[in-house]
Write a protein that binds this DNA or RNA. Structure first.
Lengths: 341, 341
DNA sequence: TCAAACATCCAAAGCGCTTTGAACACTGGG
DNA sequence: CCCAGTGTTCAAAGCGCTTTGGATGTTTGA
């Protein structure tokens, strides 16, 4: 059943029925009720395609899915998506996943913006120099960012306090007596990796420790990369007594390296990992249970979706700039630094 | 630039331009070339919304995202989605993610089918009694299934040989001398869980072993559930010498339980896990490296997307019924059963 | 009492595409 | 020279909604 038929059924015009359904004021309450009841009774649902064509608005929200990047390192993505989905479902918004490779990512964004298949896009993991942000800004296409944009002015975003988290975690390790610490970070072109790096560096500086005691590696945060890196670090002459890990997956790799080398965690080696709360990999299900800096990626997903919808509803960009605190949760993977041998 | 403007620019009718662009035969090659060139030059892109309204086809493919189920146990989902995305991107199809909870999943499917926002839906993890399949069949809405449908007749699907995989894995353990084996399976209403269960049971029967030596547990396949289950099994009087795990995550939980109880893998305990090839969690990055039954969930994603697109192109349902073989990869988590003590 | 203001409702014009049914020009066979 | 057949193009009618610009009563203020 379409609008025309419904209108005929009610002996009303399409205009009135449409307005009644969409809550416009220029229709009396009586008729609105009648219309609403009839729509319900006949199971009328407006055609999204027609509405889209008529209004120019898609009632959809775009998420660019970088197949290579996400598949490689992001079981997180599901959690994030679940958060986004939860909110957008409530508002009746569709979620369009646009796949892309790193190479054609820009083109994908351009297409999304021009085609009008979505009203707003959500952009994740911003880079130090981010062509996607430049492009969307230039096209004046609505977008919101999950993570800290390189130029936050005029951009709505939500981020977790990566700086604070790693500063706190590093300070904690230093207090425990650790001096040689290895940070296994994400790739350095991500803003979050920079923030974490700064956090750790500041903690060292604050403790009056030389910065070369902090060994830092930037890489895609997979278990395997982490394993290789940790293995190499642990077999070197001056091996670290503690690791800071960018994710739970990284911690997994480090744990394996430690196990293979017969090192006990936390006796010989302390580990702190950042935990985005993947339900599939709870930090407290590891052995030993992991000390973490914790923040919910899912909650971030819901928040960023809310922001996106607000943006569609007309909110100005740059209105929101949330930075969420990150909590240090001490569990069994950290202990006082071993005596120097 | 829209079609009308482009047509005026070319001094042609919209009809001709539209047909030239869409490859219809009733337009001469010369004009087609001219039109194509002009479209290119002006950067003309047809409006998806208008096309959708006019044709009734959405050029989109729907994936229902069961937020609770997926978020809980499926980092796999990302890999799967990557596979789907890869194929659909090539054909210019959008992917629409429809979130739902288990409660409103049926309604979500109904809406998808009626709204015309997608041309076909992909359905994952079919159940023994699956209302989604019934609904879509009844509505005569195109769909394809990832997994074995309860009533395969007239349904296009692709599945991995869960039966064969678990039969093979179980036989292998039996050959190694294991007699008490615990299978940590997915929830029993899934067809895949049934198939795995049967595979293991048949292997026991074939070896002439009583079926009560196979202890089986059905549950959501999380590390934590697996941990609890394994812990309980390992502390019982007649503890198993081997575990069959429904996923890598399950294996993680079992490994933890073993570690806490001071059991060495594979000396005291053998483990085989089914591996869907999550790049984030390679089975060979565990300690010890895991013996697995392996199949690529990503490849399944690409295949099921191809099927979905074929279905849209007019292929009859039930045409495809792929069952992919699963390979047993022997690594370090399996060994001969320990001597009875 | 009349004009102005308001509250309701409507007809019709889009939105940008596809597709039907027809027109037109050009060929070759009779 | 005419007609059927073919190849090429077009005008116009949708697709199902929103929205503009009235039209039609109904009140209100002076």
């Amino acid at each position: 059943m379409n609008l025309k038929e419904l209108a005929e059924e009610l002996h009303l015009s399409q205009t009135t029925v449409s307005r009644a359904l969409n809550g416009y004021p220029e229709v009396s309450e009586k008729t609105r009720e009648i219309v609403l009841a009839a729509a319900q009774r006949f199971g009328y649902r407006p055609s999204p395609a027609a509405r889209r064509l008529a209004t120019g608005r898609a009632h959809a929200l775009g998420v660019v899915f970088n197949a290579e990047r996400n598949a490689l390192m992001d079981p997180l993505f599901v959690e994030y998506l679940a958060g986004v989905a939860e909110v957008s479902a409530k508002q009746g918004f569709d979620i369009l996943i646009s796949p892309s490779t790193p190479r054609d990512e820009i083109a994908t964004f351009g297409r999304l913006a021009r085609d009008g298949t979505v009203d707003v896009v959500i952009l994740s993991a911003p880079l130090i120099v981010d062509a996607r942000i430049s492009l969307l800004s230039e096209l004046k296409f609505p977008f919101v960012v999950h993570g800290r944009p390189p130029e936050p002015a005029g951009v709505s975003y939500i981020d977790i306090d990566n700086f604070g988290a790693f500063q706190q975690a590093t300070s904690f390790l230093i207090q425990l007596g650790h001096r040689r610490i290895t940070l296994i970070n994400g790739e350095e072109h991500f803003t979050f990796a920079q923030d974490r790096s700064h956090g750790a560096a500041i903690a060292f500086a604050a403790a009056g420790l030389p910065k070369n005691m902090l060994e830092e590696h930037f890489m895609p945060m997979t278990a395997e990369n982490a394993y290789r890196c940790a293995r190499q670090a642990l077999e070197s002459d001056e091996r670290p007594t503690a690791f800071l890990c960018g994710s739970i997956l990284v911690a997994l790799g480090v744990l394996r390296a430690a196990a293979e080398l017969g090192l006990d965690v936390p006796r010989d080696l302390s580990i702190i990992a950042h935990d985005d709360e993947m339900p599939a990999f709870p930090a407290d299900q590891f052995h030993p249970q992991l000390t973490t800096t914790r923040s919910s990626i899912r909650a971030a997903g819901t928040r960023v979706a809310e922001m996106a919808l607000a943006r569609v509803a007309g909110q100005k960009p740059g209105t929101v700039a949330d930075v969420w605190p990150v909590q240090l949760i001490v569990r069994g993977s950290t202990a006082a630094a071993p005596e120097r041998g």
